[in-house]
Amino acid sequence: MTTAAATHTHRDDVGSRMGMWLFLFTELILFGGLFIVYAVYRFKFPEQFQLAARELDTLVGTVNTIILLTSSLTVAMSITAIQQGKKHLSMMLIGMTIIFALAFLVNKYFEWSHKISIGIYPQSPELLNKPQGEILYFGLYYVMTGLHALHVIIGMVVLLFSMVFIATGKINQQSYVKLEAGGLYWHLVDIIWIFLFPLFYLIS
């Protein structure tokens, strides 16, 4: 510990939360750039986007949406649990959230590998034969769901750390702002998916 850190024992949960919200803002804007790109190309190639969207399996998307929504519930419950001092319950709920996240990724993995096996991936001869709007649709599909999956993985790591912190007592009934921050991040991952799901799966 260096001097400044050693002597800084101030605690200001409002400020910590504020910092987290600002960070979530930047994440939203990061995806916002992608949503702009999507909107522009959808406007440019409406029919081809429609056509390409039929290639996606709405069922898989729906299942993943349900999984993520449930995981948001479990993470919110884990915060309530720690507020009530139920350490083990809280850890178990975080564990469930991580399992849901894993399930989401497994689902995603099968979805992607199915697409790749039928020859739809960037620069594939199959895809290059399709009209430009469909190339763009699948390009965006891979980029946006890929970046989202990356966020799911980051979220899992954050939650794993929260679990460890609860075990070591760093997060406890009196001081749980770290878990709240992790939970907020997880909700963000969820919300972005809520937008991705209709854009890619439902408008077809």
């Binding site: 930047t26 994440e27 804007i29 990061l30 995806f31 916002g32 750039g33 992608l34 790109v37 522009v40 190309y41 440019k44 190639f45 960037p122 620069q123 290059l128 009209p131 430009q132 709007g133 190339i135 763009l136 390009g139 965006l140 891979y142 980029v143 970046l147």
Partner: peptide, 29 residues
Amino acid sequence: TPVIGITLLLVVVERLFGVGIFDPNLGGD
């Protein structure tokens, strides 16, 4: 700043995988 972050990342992805988002040959703008 996040806007430039995602934009530069898209160029990286474009160079690595040829996704087509900005490449006029693939319909990009």
